[in-house]
Structures are given as C-alpha cells and as structure tokens.
Design a binder for these strands. Sequence first.
DNA 1: AACAGGATCAACCGCCATATG
DNA 2: CCATATGGCGGTTGATCCTGT
Length: 272
Amino acid sequence: MVRAPCCEKMGLKRGPWTAEEDRILISHIQLYGHGNWRALPKQAGLLRCGKSCRLRWINYLRPDIKRGNFSREEEDTIIKLHEMLGNRWSAIAARLPGRTDNEIKNVWHTHLKKRLEQNHVAPEINGRSVDVSRFNHKVKTDPEIVSSSNVVAAGCDQTKEHRPVSPQQCSSDVSSVITVDTSNDMSTKVLESDDVLEMDEIFWSEVLSADNSSLTSDYPAISTEPLIQFPFSPLIIDMEQVQATNSSMYDGLDFWHNLFTRAGELPELPEI
DNA sequence: AACAGGATCAACCGCCATATG
DNA sequence: CCATATGGCGGTTGATCCTGT
C-alpha cells in the first residue's frame, strides 16, 4: 500500500508561494527554527504541508542562497563533479556554496548537458572516451573505511604481508581487493569486491586528503591533489589491461600515485 | 501583433534511509 | 524487532517567459 502524498490533505495549498507566505515562513523559522517540518506549517499558520515549507526554505528563502546566474567557473565545477558523482545533485551542491541541488539540477538539464553534447566533452584518457557512469556507485559509509588515514597498499589479494602490491602481482580481477591502513600500527583492512564496488570518490577524497605523516619511508606520501582533478573513480582500472602494458613505471605505490594524480597518463583502458 | 515551440525554473511526487516509539 | 513518522533526495511536471516566424 502506497502512502498518500503529504499534501493530499484537504485544505492544504499547493503551487507557487506568495510573498506573504514567504514572510510568514521566514519569520517563523527565524523565531523558532525548523526542528520539525511536519509541525511547522501548523505552528506558523501556513496552509502548506511540511515538505512544501522545507523545499521553499531550502531552495529559495535560506539567507545563504546565492541568487543569479552561474559563473563559468561554477558551471565547469558542476561538469567536473558530475563526471565523478553522476546525478547526485545534493553532493554536488555541497561543494558549491550558496547553490541548491534543485538549482544545479536545473542548470545541468537546461545548459550544461547541451553544452557537453555540443562540445562532446566526454572524459578522455589517452585520447579515448571513458564511460564513467558505470563507476558512480553509492557510497558505502563504513566509518572504518572513511576514517582510514591512508592507503597502504592497493592491489589484489596480497594482504598477508601488508605491503603495497603492484598490478603485476595481481590477478586480472578488476576490483578484487584493496587494502587500506586503518590505524597507526599499519594493520590493514581488506575490502572485498563488494566493498570496492560500493566505494566512490568520497572515500578516495578522504584518503587523499588525509594526513600522510604516518606513512613510513616504504610508503611514499600520496599527493593530496584536489578531488576535483579526479576524472573518474579509481575503480575504472582494468587490471588485465594494466598488466598488459608491462611497464615498470607502474610498480607498487608509484603506480597508484600516478593513477590517482595523473590519470591522463594511464595505460590502455577499455574503450567504450 | 499573434502564435507556436522551446527554455527555464519553482514546485511536486515518489521513493528510500533513518529515527523513533 | 517491527511499524510508523520524518527528512532528504532525484526525477518529473507544469506554469511562465522568451524567441523566432
């Protein structure tokens, strides 16, 4: 059985908000806050449902909303973030102060999508377009993973020695195992393939923005390049392809360092 | 000036995750 | 542990505005 829409109750107003309704909502939130959206309209004397009030406040009335057209920089940021995050508008909005998910969604559908189609600006690696949509996985909010201080080793199935492993040591399984340091004693957490498939850029941004000071000399510091420079999730790696390159420059952590920060120099990747 | 079609954007819908009793 | 309430999110709609003919 499907729950009835919250605004279905008789007498509740729908449609565009009037200036008077806005004024009532603003003054009520200024006085009492918005602890309970469901109860708010009744307390404020508004003939609206709580959901409608929340939306109006979040998308239009909040004092920190930035109105007006998007700058070129903001648009470029949205495009880059969308490459990484997909249609996760709230996550994109969180990185654009003063902009709402609704606004970003609208801009994407009305301007940016067309701009990309016209320019055909698909993410490219080594001149080949790469399908990033496959890697826009849901974040798995495993606190142990997210709070990990640094990447110790990234590879496959070589976790017993807790050493970085090179792609050459790995099986051809794209996402078999990644090991991550979870404490100062360098113990590792082994992520099974399901974990890996569910990780995304938030995990990687956490890892890469973490303090690298606890890394030993055996594990060179990982660059803390801004997240925005990641053109795609590291999960795009096709180990079979990587192995096929037979390139010594991708040994151990250097391989992953290069991968994370200089994706444009990746070896062959699957073509769409 | 009138109309059609496209573009824009505020608002709504339905679903899901989490909180609460 | 289960049912229900609530907040939040992404997808979609529809009213309005804009532009070309």
